[in-house]
Simulated assay, not measured.
Amino acid sequence: MNKKHNIAMVGTLVNALLDFRADLIIDMVAKGHTVYAFACDFDTHSEQRVRSWGAIPVPYKISRSSLNPLSDLAVTYRLFRLFRQLKIDVSFCYFVKPVIYGNLAAVLAGVTQRAVKIEGLGWVFTDPPTGVTLKLKILRLIQLSLYRITLPLAHTVFLLNPDDRRDLVDKYGIKIKNLVQLDGIGVNLTHFSCCSYPQTLRFVFVGRLLKEKGIGYFLCAATALKQKYPDVEFIVLGAPDSAPGSISKEQLTSMVECGTLLYPGRVSNVADWLQNCSVFVLPSYYREGVPRSTMEAMAMGRPVITTNVAGCKETVIHGQNGFLVEPHDVESLISAMETFVLQPELVQRMGLKSRQLAQTRFDVIKVNQIILTALCLDKDT
């Protein structure tokens, strides 16, 4: 008989839960497990969405950016209380603070199976173009120290790209009991399916509008290419972020008003927009896991232009399904984008290769099966 578990899926923002965890949670529920989905900003609509999957939403308080240790200890205590109250026996924590403090709370609460997923090393390990500051070096030291304490306490650690493994395990010597390497978090190949290509050449950026994600470089390239090729279109999908360095809505609005850009904001129907675009562009220098937005574009048969950095480079075979450019190199980005203007036949040829790679490496069904098997959530006991 299959043993049923009470699973805590612990993250931060509800949008990440809704956009990126649905398939995994639905699979867990289908196996007969009770899944409690933790997020810090639920509203009525998002709670209803989670309940529609058969899971139970659990609001809790956590600050993504606070550096106050007392605040973080309070988060640990709140999660400890909730884990005990809900009789959690499997914890699955993702994003930096839940990985650290959620995993620690799970230890204190006696959770018998503890898993964490590190989806890239994040902004603390992102090298800005101006160089690494003393503050950033200190923050890295603190985060590494916390990882050294908490990651050995997890029974399973999931990583999304080989660079994170080389850094955390080989370079920094962090002890991990059971490390499982995933090819990203996966994408639903049915929802994001390959489709025809528009006649108008359109480049699209999808993501948080952070400078680390390369939105500024995309806008610079769009401005230069729009002047040279007025019939080419450029689209940005995503909302301004509360984090420092986010592109403002006013900046985007001014580019819309002068005809350089289409900006519908954050949309719920990303697949529809990708269907009407030609080439996906993510000039990120952020320390990614494997960008989900890129995988979605690949699943829909779109060529990809992205950077030769950790996480991003896992999505492109240079010259086959797109192009890799060096981070911060706007001229190289413009050149790569211009290649599709001058050789539009590459859109379909490279796009079909993207779809093949998505089917081989990023199928969410395969990825979730690896997770469920690693956590023994689909075995008879």
Rank of each mutant, 00 (worst) to 15 (best):
Glu326Tyr: 12
Thr253Cys: 09
Gly319Val: 08
Tyr286Ala: 02
Asp380His: 13
Met9Gly: 00
Leu201Thr: 04
Gly102Met: 00
Val169Leu: 09
Pro129Met: 05
Met295Ile: 06
Ala310His: 10
Arg355Ala: 08
Leu342Ser: 14
His5Ala: 03
Asp19Phe: 08
Cys312Tyr: 10
Ala297His: 07
Thr156Asn: 12
Leu210Glu: 07
Thr373Glu: 15
Asp329Val: 01
Ser66Phe: 09
Arg208Trp: 05
Ala222Asn: 09
Lys213Met: 11
Leu17Arg: 01
Thr126Arg: 08
Thr294Val: 15
Phe340Tyr: 15
Phe95Cys: 03
Ser196Val: 08
Ser193Thr: 14
Ala22Asp: 09
Gln251Ala: 11
Leu372Glu: 06
Cys195Lys: 11
Ile25Gly: 02
Gly120Tyr: 04
Ala358Trp: 05
Val10Ser: 01
Gly289Lys: 06
Val341Arg: 09
Leu17Tyr: 01
Tyr285Gln: 06
Val325Ala: 00
Gln275Trp: 09
Asp163His: 14
Gln48His: 12
Pro69Val: 01
Gln227Leu: 15
Leu134Asp: 07
Ile371Glu: 02
Ala37Ser: 10
Gly289Ala: 11
Lys249Asp: 14
Leu139Met: 10
Gln113Met: 12
Lys366Asp: 12
Gly265Glu: 06
Leu104Phe: 08
Val206Lys: 04
Thr12Gly: 00
Asp183Glu: 15
Asn321Met: 10
Leu24Met: 14
Met9Tyr: 08
Gly184Leu: 02
Lys379Met: 06
Glu331Lys: 15
Phe203Lys: 00
Leu144Pro: 00
Asp167Ser: 14
Val169Cys: 08
Arg148Glu: 07
Gln359His: 13
Leu209Thr: 01
Val14Glu: 01
Val50Lys: 00
Asn103Ser: 10
Tyr229Pro: 03
Gly120Ala: 07
Phe125Cys: 07
Gly238His: 07
Pro129Phe: 03
Gly173Asn: 15
Leu18Lys: 02
Asn178Ala: 05
Ile370Val: 10
Glu257Ser: 14
Leu262Pro: 03
Asn321Ile: 05
Thr44Ala: 15
Val270Gly: 08
Glu288Gly: 10
Leu70Gln: 11
Leu375His: 03
Tyr60Arg: 03
Arg349Glu: 12
Ser293Arg: 02
Ile7Phe: 04
Gln48Asp: 13
Thr223Ile: 14
Tyr94Cys: 01
Tyr197Asp: 12
Tyr285Val: 01
Ile305Glu: 08
Ala106Tyr: 02
Tyr172His: 15
Met1Leu: 09
Val341Pro: 05
Ala243Glu: 08
Gly322Arg: 06
Ser71Phe: 12
Lys379Cys: 05
Val256Ala: 05
Thr130Arg: 13
Gln85Glu: 15
Ile149Arg: 11
Leu67Cys: 10
Tyr77Lys: 15
Asp127Met: 06
Ser278Ile: 01
Leu324Arg: 05
Val14Cys: 03
Phe362Gly: 02
Arg21Asp: 04
Thr294Pro: 02
Ser335Arg: 12
Asn103Ala: 03
Gln275Leu: 10
Lys175Ile: 09
Val50Trp: 00
